[in-house]
Amino acid sequence: MSSDTTGVLPREGVAVSGVRAALLQKRTRLGEHAYTVVRWGGAAVFAAVVVALLISVAGSSSQALTRSGVGFLWSGTWNPAAGEYGAGILVVGTLLTTAVAMVIVVPIGLGTAAFLSELAPGWLAGPLSTLIGLLAAVPSIVVGLWGLIVLTPIFANQVEPFLASMPLLGWLFRGEAYGPSVLLASVVLAVMTLPTMVALSRTALAAVPVADREAALALGATRWQAVRKAVIPAARSGIQAAVTLAVGRAMGESIAVAMVIGNRPALPTSLTAPGATLGSAIVNQFAEASPGLGTSSVIALGAVLLLLTVAVNAGGQALLRSGGGHRAGTAGALR
């Protein structure tokens, strides 16, 4: 559709007198121009917001970044008292909590999506997905409060000692069971990313044509073999997008993580040890940051987080857009 439409005449203009028609046409052109202007205006304001966001985050963190250079990214120390600022440990903490959250949420989310899309009867699948959708609406602060007050004692007294006593995997959870920890933060992140994971994977599975399922069944596959070998592989790009967008969400969550991770900017020695992420550090350090370099360094953490999440989300969006294109070959070949 072109935006040049001032040539379109109002139909009623034909019936009225010449003078009125000319007047009407003039008003029409004016209105049309005004409409074009505001429409472009809306888009321009939005574009300006995006650009301003990038500029102001970059600008406000420039003091810290010029002082530490690119080394800010991997310098391991975050010790404002000594005037040492580096994002390294926090980047590791962010990636670690996100990875553990994904270990939890990907199998559960995918299993749930498969259950809803392939296995459950309609009367059950509908209400269940509505409930899981409602979880997405729960504010992160409420999840954080629940994690802090309800889950922390359970983790300190039951979950963490149990995990530490496990054979083979126990070493991952060794050390004092303290409650607030990388593990607890990951569980809270898993809860928060679960609706994204379920909804997007379910959409991807549902988009696989019935013909793929029936092809497998007609060869003698069991229902589960059809799901596992025909449906899930065909939905792969959509599922990858779901995971990627869940990763983006998990990396960027700050307030709930800050409430349950223990906020110790050091390399965690085990999953039950306290840690810190970029987001949790921003939440905790911001109020106490000294004006100037301190504040600029905290904002620089935000710049690093912005880079990470934008890269991940752009990848996820690209995957979403590419999804469903795999059968283009068939469509083209049929003619």
């Binding site: 060869l219 070998k229 592989p233 795999h326």
Partner: peptide
């Protein structure tokens, strides 16, 4: 069974498609 529209498994190669039933 052979269906109205060709429905090879989109994520599989030619070979994997042919042997998919045997694997099932």
């Amino acid at each position: 069974m052979v269906f109205q529209r060709p429905n090879p498994f989109p994520a599989m190669s030619v070979f994997e498609n042919v042997v998919s039933g045997l694997r099932f």
